[in-house]
Design a binder for these strands. Sequence first.
DNA 1: TCGGCAAGCCAC
DNA 2: AAACGTGGCTTGCCGA
Length: 383
Amino acid sequence: MLSRLSGEFAQRAGALEAEIQTLAGEPLNPGSPKQLGDILFGKFGLPGGTKTKTGQWSTGARVLDDLAEQGHALPRKILDWRQVSKLKSTYTDALPSYVNAQTHRVHTSYALAATPTGRLSSSEPNLQNIPIRTEEGRKIRRAFIAADGHKLVSADYSQIELRLLAEIAGIEALKKAFREGLDIHAMTASEMFGVPVKGMPGEIRRRAKAINFGIIYGISAFGLANQLGIEREEAGAYIKKYFERFPGIRDYMEETKAFAKKNGYVLTLFGRKCHYPDIANPNPTLRAFNERAAINARLQGTAADIIRRAMVRMEPALAKAKLSAQMLLQVHDELVFEVPDSEVEKTLPVVEKVMSQAPLPALSLYVPLAVEARAAQNWDDAH
DNA sequence: TCGGCAAGCCAC
DNA sequence: AAACGTGGCTTGCCGA
C-alpha cells in the first residue's frame, strides 16, 4: 500500500520537477529554498519578498501561496512538489523501514517526560503527525489498518483545551455553551460581531475559530495577523474586541502571567508544575515568549494530565468488562485501539466513559468532556 | 565523511 | 531578530 503510494508520489514529483525547470528557465533543485528565493525575488524580481533571520529569502508556504494568487505559475508547482516530496520522504518511504520483523508492525517510541507541558512525544517513527488535512495525506492514514477480524477504534476529546479554558477562566457564557452543545466558534463570532449564529457566513466563523485557537496559544496581534493573513492593526482590533466581550479571559491570562512571574512555574488543574524559569527575563522577546508558553501550558498540561489518567485506567477498565481491546496509540487528545469485530459495540462506551470521566474524583468539571469514538477498518475512516 | 543548523512542514 | 503553544523528520548547506 505505502510502497505503491511511494511510486505514485515519485512519479508526480518527477513530472513536477520537469515543469519547475522549464518555468525557472535554469537548473533548480526544488528542495533548495535558497536557490528558489534567488530565482523568485532576484532573477524574476517578484514583489513582497521578506528575508529570514539568516538573510535568505523566505519561501514558506504562505509566501508561495501569495505569489501563486498573483498569477505566477512557478510557486504553485513548488508547493505541489513540496507536498508530494514531504509525503513520500517522511511517510511512504520511511514507515515501511520501521516494520518490525517479529511483529510485522510499526512500533513507535513514546517519551513520557520530554515536553515542558507534560504531553508525550513520539519518535522513530513519530506516529503523532500522520497526515490528515489533505486528501493526498489521508491516503497514508488509510494504510494504518486493523488485523483481520478486528477494527481500529479512534476516540478523541472534542475541543478539550477550549473547554478547559472555559472551565479554568470561569467564563459563564462559554461554559454554558459547552454544556448545551453549541457551536463554540459560531457563538464566539456571534458575541464578538453581533451576527446571529443562524446563517452566519463561513468567513466570520473562521476568524472567530482562529481567535479561539490564538487565545489558547497566548495570543498576539502578530501571530493572529499571520494566521489570518490580515494586518496587525486589524488583528489587534479583534483581540481588543474579544477581551471586551470576555474580560474574564484577559483576567485569566494576566493572573497566569503574574503567578508565573512570582513562582517561575504554572500549575495544571491537578496541581502539576510546568516550569518557566525565563518568565522574568529582561529580554522582552524572551519574556513574552515564556508568558505565552505559560498561558498555554495550563491548558495543554491539564489536557495532558486528563488523557494520562484515562490511559492509566483504560487497561483495568477493559479487563473488568472482559474486553480484549488493545490500546495502540496516543495522539495528544486521541486514543487508538484495536478491537475484535464482535467486541466493538461493547468497547466504545467503556472507552468513552473512561476518557470523559478521567478527571474524577480529583476534579469535577462543570464543563463536560465530550468524547467522539468511531470504529473502522482503517485509521482514516475511524477518525 | 560526519555533525549540526536552518528552513520547511507534518500533527495536535 | 522574532513576533500564537507543543513536538519530530527531512533536505540542503556549511564547516570541521
